[in-house]
Deep mutational scan, measured.
Amino acid sequence: CHSECLGNCSQPDDPTKCVACRNFYLDGRCVETCPPPYYHFQDWRCVNFSFCQDLHHKCKNSRRQGCHQYVIHNNKCIPECPSGYTMNSSNLLCTPCLGPCPKVCHLLEGEKTIDSVTSAQELRGCTVINGSLIINIRGGNNLAAELEANLGLIEEISGYLKIRRSYALVSLSFFRKLRLIRGETLEIGNYSFYALDNQNLRQLWDWSKHNLTITQGKLFFHYNPKLCLSEIHKMEEVSGTKGRQERNDIALKTNGDQASCENELLKFSYIRTSFDKILLRWEPYWPPDFRDLLGFMLFYKEAPYQNVTEFDGQDACGSNSWTVVDIDPPLRSNDPKSQNHPGWLMRGLKPWTQYAIFVKTLVTFSDERRTYGAKSDIIYVQTDATNPSVPLDPISVSNSSSQIILKWKPPSDPNGNITHYLVFWERQAEDSELFELDYCLKGLKLPSRTWSPPFESEDSQKHNQSEYEDSAGECCSCPKTDSQILKELEESSFRKTFEDYLHNVVFVPRKT
């Protein structure tokens, strides 16, 4: 048989008469490798580009789960590009990614509803959504962080984005990388972005840091009482949809009607710091009717980097990364020049730590249904340095008659930039024990000054392991946590139920 035959053949030295091919099969003959313009397919066939392209389009058009959109890589027609490569849609070739590779997620039936953290986790790592997304989240724990972890990498949506009755959302900033909504599939009414009845939605994105392009379709905003109209108009300008909307697409009466839409800028007039305090004062603000001013709200939190936005980490279910302080308005003076500047002394802060701070007014709604208010920009203030805590785990070892090696770990709280350490030492008198000992005694162990690591005695271990207080009263049991108490109650309830079950099964009433 021919060298490319495997198993047997019907005619000697003829690659077209093989029972099976050793390498690849091409047009009725066995070959060692697939010549151009053919590609290896499933490690035994040679196919042309049209064959591989037909497989790709067949799966793409069917949208069946589990099928493969075949691509070409290293002269092979394979189910998908290997790690580190992405497909070129024009020629199906796998090309190296520039940075992290995109991950295209194809949605069944063309859309997916995100109504819980669990459903959001199914899209973790996706960068391109081939379909439409509907966000409908009523509640949950730590929602802002969970949504950002699972949806934060999405850069492109081919269909539309719909935010509907998501009472738990305060902001859409968890879509931190969303840059493009194509609108290839539109919501009824030709809408590519749809926001309806979101009672706590206050911000779409921080438009000073976020760009969003909507290729096709219109915007729809109705019944978002805490979303200011200025935020919607800003989205029109940034996304390129200005002029597409009709009169009733953006409701003037049901958007922002319960919001404090600040239209003035508060400026800080005085800032002073110490290692654990920050004193702030800002310019006074009074609405047209000074009785509408209820006070100020001061927001602050630790910020290692200057990239904080107002609604980071917030949701309507209680999660809030900001510390909020309510401040009463100052006494009002008739003389504008003698107006008191409101302020606040922030206490209990960490030394040498940068804080993000902003302040906003708290006002009631005027009778004319106009909203007044003022808010400052987010500023960054760093507390002063102070003395560091003591170095940890000092170790001293003498390696000769004239040297001592000293080692330690950095302090747990540096409280500033540590530039150097101060080492103090003092000579001590020799131990009298060394002169009084009889060095001729056998088995004498000389006193040693070398360091030995501390260890816990058996008594201390027994005390720590004991669940009861000892007789001397030195140790006591740790208080039980809520989960331990709940577990004990469940076990007790189970024992009672099981005992009742045994009584009912074992003891049967005697027939009379």
Rank of each mutant, 00 (worst) to 15 (best):
A120L: 08
Y223Q: 08
R332P: 09
V359L: 08
R281V: 03
L227S: 01
L143V: 12
D292M: 08
N255A: 06
N340T: 14
E148C: 05
N248S: 11
E231L: 11
P330N: 09
F268R: 00
W207G: 03
V325I: 15
F268K: 00
S116Q: 02
L345Q: 12
Y300L: 09
E310T: 06
E246W: 02
G140Q: 14
G217E: 00
H210T: 01
E187V: 09
S166M: 14
G217V: 00
K301P: 00
C228I: 03
S173M: 10
T241M: 14
K253C: 09
A144D: 03
L229M: 06
H106L: 07
S208G: 14
L180P: 00
D197L: 15
T118L: 04
Y355A: 01
P394E: 04
T353V: 08
P411D: 03
I271D: 00
D115F: 04
L172H: 00
L229R: 12
L201M: 02
Q339R: 09
F174A: 09
D335G: 04
R247N: 04
D328P: 15
Y355E: 00
D249K: 15
L227N: 00
V325S: 10
G189T: 05
T213S: 09
P351A: 09
I135G: 00
A120Q: 03
I188M: 02
N198T: 02
L392T: 05
R370H: 03
D289L: 03
W322K: 00
L252F: 14
F174G: 02
Q382W: 07
Q403G: 15
A144H: 11
K277P: 00
E156S: 06
K112H: 14
A195I: 13
D197M: 06
T371S: 10
P288Y: 00
W352Y: 02
L108Y: 07
L169G: 02
E122F: 04
L349N: 00
I405R: 09
E109R: 04
R370G: 15
P351S: 08
A303S: 10
H341W: 09
G348L: 05
R176A: 06
A303Y: 14
S376P: 02
S239Q: 05
F174T: 04
A251K: 09
I157G: 00
